Each structure stands twice: as C-alpha cells, then as structure tokens.
Computed example of a mutant assay.
Amino acid sequence: MSESPSVKHAVKNQFDAPAQELPLPEGPDVITRNAIALNSLNPDPRSKLIFDNLIRHLHEFVRETQLTTDEWMTAIQFLTATGQTCTPIRQEFILLSDVLGVSALVDALNNPTVGNSTQSTVLGPFFTEDAADLTSGDSIASEGKGSYLYVTGRVVDTAGRPIPNATIETWETDDHGFYDTQYSDRDHPDCRGRFKSDAHGVYAFRAVVPVAYPIPGDVCPVGQLLEKMHRHNMRPAHLHMMVEAEGFQKLITSFYPEGDKWIASDAVFGVKKSLVVKLRTVDDENEARSKGFAKGSTFKLLEQDIVLASPEETQRARESLSKA
C-alpha cells in the first residue's frame, strides 16, 4: 500500500560522509580536531578560514572557562530570547554585537579613517528601510517629539569638492528616548527621513535635539545581559546618518552633542572624538520661522559637513592598517 502524499520524510542534504574516517571523540581535543577536519571539506577559502577560526576560538573559550552544562544552557536560552526579540524593524542581535564591542571592532577594521573624511561608527539595531523621502528643510519628526534642531551642511569629497545628489538617511529617538520602532502602535516612520544633497552638495533638515537613552532591560535580553555584567545601559545622545553617493564609500555614522555624561562610556563603544559636535543655540523668531519651525523662537543648530572617501582611498587605508 502506497503512503499518503501528505506523509513527510526527513530530508538529507547533498553531502555524503567524508572519505576520511574520523576517530570517535574519546576526549575533548578529538572533538575540536574532528570539527576542523570536517570544515576542511569547505571549498571556499574565506568561508573555511572563518569557520576554522570560529571553531578553534569557541572551543578554546569553553576549555578556558570550563563552561558548565548549566551555563551552556543559559547561553542557549539567552540566544533564543535574543532571536525571538528580533522583528523586521528591530535587530536584537546587532545590539548584542554592539554591547560586546564586536560591531565597533568590525567597523574600525573595515572603515579606517581616510584623511579628513568623516569617521564611521556602528549602525545600531533601529535602522529601518521605510524612511520617507523628504525635501530639503523638511522635518523628520512630527510636532511634539522634542526640542527643535536644525541640521545642515555640505556633502563633499576629501578634496572639498561638493557631491550632488548624495542620499542622506537619518534617524533618532524622540525626547523620551524611544525610537519609533519601540512603540507598539507605530503606523508610520517618525524621527527618521531620507534626503538628497543639492547641486552644491548642501543638505538640510529639521529634527529634534537628541537625548541620551537606556537600552531597555525589562523586555530586552541584551539589556538584561548588561545587568548581569554590572554595566550601565546608557547611550549618549546622538543623531544617526547614513550617506551614500555614486563613486564613494558608503558612510554610516552618528553625531554626539558635546557635554553628555555618557560619551566616554557609551554602552556600544560608538563614540569617536571627531564625531562629538557642538550645537549652537539660536534664539530668533524670524530665523525659526524661516527654518520652518511652527512654535517658539529658539532652536539648536548643527552645522556639519560630511566628507566621503572613495572606495580606492578606503582600500588603501585598509591595506595600511593591516600592515601596521
């Protein structure tokens, strides 16, 4: 009698058992050697290198710490909770990478500073793809989201030449310290937007003054991890930017208003000295109206040029860094 078409069977992948017979793992060292031996079948040199090193370092970590079964299970449960927290508009694994300094390290190795170019920093877990395309001078934030901020500058190359039609994407929290993605009733992007530089490389937009904020510990596995590590969970106030232009290296950066007490101990190691900026206070009602602010006469002004490097300049800087 034939089986019903609805019956499913476990499916083997396309790989067969290795020709080399591996010894049964009678001791810890054999387990590591076997795992590396199986990875030797990987035909991709880069992939093989990454997994060889991952296996070695991960196994060595287990040996050095004498990891217990209970600790291993706690780690599994933590990673499970981290994955379950991720959504299409929130990336908890990026946040985990951030607080362990991995994101900052990857950024530093891949995006070395090129001359006077604007330094990069971590992306963070709250970038989304749905920011609205806005016109120069528009506001990224709906009214009431915080104190007024006007941001303007030029996008230029390392020689100071303007870069027209560059895409400037920006996002930040409101004055409560929440990104729009942290609100359960979010129905549209807020405190984020996408702009283009003009023919002279100039960009401008209205925003709100950034505030310092905590990585939440009540519903956030990474926040709970920081509690376990006896570390504070604060990020200094900052404004994210992602800048792209044809023929130039993509830039992911943030700007941190000076004077924030958390700058030197940012929970995700994102602050670089050149990214600490001064906000100027403008108290002029006519100027506020000309910038498009609806209420009051006072706003903060950030004048910040963005200097992009070419891929060739960036590659030379990477090669120089690797030789250092």
Rank of each mutant, 00 (worst) to 15 (best):
S2W: 13
S4N: 15
K8V: 13
H9F: 15
H9E: 15
K12C: 14
Q14T: 12
Q14I: 09
L24W: 09
P25R: 07
E26K: 14
N34Q: 07
N34Y: 07
N42A: 09
S47Y: 02
L49Y: 05
I50F: 02
I50V: 13
D52W: 09
L54P: 03
L58D: 14
H59K: 03
F61C: 07
V62K: 11
T65N: 10
L67H: 00
D70I: 10
W72F: 13
I76R: 14
I76K: 08
Q77G: 06
L79F: 14
T82A: 10
C86H: 08
P88N: 08
I89R: 12
Q91D: 15
Q91Y: 11
Q91K: 04
L100W: 10
A104E: 08
V106I: 15
D107C: 12
D107K: 09
N111A: 08
P112N: 06
T113V: 10
V114D: 03
G115I: 05
N116E: 01
V122D: 02
L123S: 09
G124Y: 00
D133L: 14
D138E: 07
S139E: 04
A141R: 05
S142Q: 14
G144I: 08
T152K: 12
R154Y: 09
R154L: 12
T158L: 05
R161Y: 00
P162L: 11
T173I: 02
D174K: 00
D175K: 11
D180G: 12
T181N: 11
T181V: 13
Q182H: 06
K196A: 12
S197M: 04
D198N: 12
A199W: 00
H200P: 02
F205G: 02
R206M: 11
I215A: 03
V219R: 07
Q224W: 01
H230F: 05
R231E: 11
R231G: 06
N233A: 07
H238Y: 08
L239N: 07
V243F: 04
E244A: 15
E246S: 15
E246D: 15
I252F: 07
T253L: 06
Y256I: 00
P257L: 02
K261N: 08
A264I: 01
S265H: 13
V271C: 07
K273M: 11
S274N: 11
L275W: 01
V277P: 01
D284Q: 05
N286Y: 13
E287A: 15
R289K: 09
R289A: 10
K291T: 09
K291C: 03
T298D: 00
K300L: 06
L301Y: 08
Q304M: 06
D305S: 00
D305T: 04
I306E: 05
I306D: 02
V307I: 12
P311H: 05
E313L: 00
T314F: 10
S322V: 03
K323S: 14
K323D: 13
